[in-house]
Write a protein that binds this DNA or RNA. Structure first.
Lengths: 215, 215
DNA sequence: ACCTGAACACCGTTCAAGT
DNA sequence: ACCTGAACACCGTTCAAGT
């Protein structure tokens, strides 16, 4: 790495690239510094400590999310930004675990919240309706990604391989219902957990629409 | 700590208690051993490495979840287990971040999946309907807890305190919509993010019911 | 102002040694 | 079989020192 001038932005970029390439465990102060051709202690001139650097790195990830527009069709806007959240978190799978521990929202995080509230408010949602809608959509989106990232298999074929390994896994008895599920869903050639996202999101958006209609 | 006979179960109990008391960062092999009146290296006689110990500890948390019964009203069963998942994860706030990184489900985790599938199957769900319902409910529940644990404030009064600290936070301009939201929702005396759980869960369960009706 | 290098108090884990 | 103690290669972070 050429010794570019060290700024917080440059440090965060290096941290992001390192985490993407080698995972969260590899994200050490020494490793980030090495990537920048500098000593670990130099980073402390730009960030109070590692936590502050992680806060800034997480906020950079927030900055990649496509924000909903104010004044458009709220359903389409929220749908698009939900797809974007998922896509960003899949590009940086180390980021979600990190987000849970940070409690000091950065500017991009705040801008994200601002845009979402603005979108729903402009669409005529009452304050309480914004609270309900926002909570349930975000819960679904974050929770779905969390499941995706944790899943021990990505597709039917990988699941089949996993079952092949576990001796007697699909055997009747203790886990007969899982066996039934695997056989009739997971092993279907067109199955992929991925595909549960769209119908789930639609279900949630339908629910919000129904809530509006009731009011 | 009296030097009880060391077994995997005893070690996991110590790890759980330590994490509950002092958080995930305090959960080191040395600290767990100290709690048991033993040396760090003794733990390696019962677990291959720290990861294996964490796997077992996470599985113990899964074991605390109240499982849905097979044959009851699926809505009530799933509702109750969802409330239980949330309650367990709030008792062990360090567990959720940990779950994301573990990819080898333990026996309690498998039993949890088995019971959920059994419940929906017994209620007459087709395989594909089980997949949809399960994905969307779990996404909502895990995602909601994730938001709860990450939230920088727990109640309106804490939010008010936070806003008081940030100079010009509620000022118009850049974050006017957040200001509107805080004023009209967060600062309402009866508001608490907690309360979004029940309506959100109801919305999701209603959506599943509607899906069944359409089939 | 910005970066360094040695040092400190920690980690997880190895290995050979004790009982 | 089960536990120990020293050691190794790491951490984040301090501090005093360099430019």
């Amino acid at each position: 790495m050429p010794p570019r001038k060290l700024t917080p932005e440059v440090v965060v970029s290096a941290a992001l690239a390192l985490a993407d390439a080698r995972g969260l465990d590899a994200l050490t102060m020494r490793a980030i510094a090495r990537e920048l051709g500098v000593e670990a202690m130099s980073l402390y001139h730009h960030f109070a400590n590692k936590d502050a650097l992680l806060d800034a790195t997480v906020d950079r990830v927030y900055g990649e999310i496509v924000l909903p527009a104010e004044g458009g069709d709220w359903r389409e806007e929220i749908r698009r930004r939900s797809v974007s959240v998922r896509s960003v978190l899949r590009q940086h799978p180390w980021a979600l675990p990190l987000m849970e521990s940070r409690r000091t929202p950065g500017p991009a995080n705040l801008a994200y919240h601002e845009a979402n509230i603005a979108c729903l408010r402009a669409a005529g949602f009452a304050p309480r309706q914004v609270a309900h809608a926002y909570a349930v959509v975000d819960a679904f989106v974050y929770g779905f990604v969390l499941q995706e990232l944790t899943l021990p298999f990505d597709s039917g074929s990988e699941a089949a391989a996993m079952i092949g390994e576990e001796p007697g896994w699909a055997g009747v008895g203790e886990w007969s219902n899982m066996a039934w599920f695997v056989e009739n869903v997971v092993l279907e050639p067109e199955y992929s957990f991925d595909r549960e996202f769209e119908p789930g999101l639609t279900l949630v958006l339908d629910g919000i629409e129904a809530m509006l209609a009731r009011a």
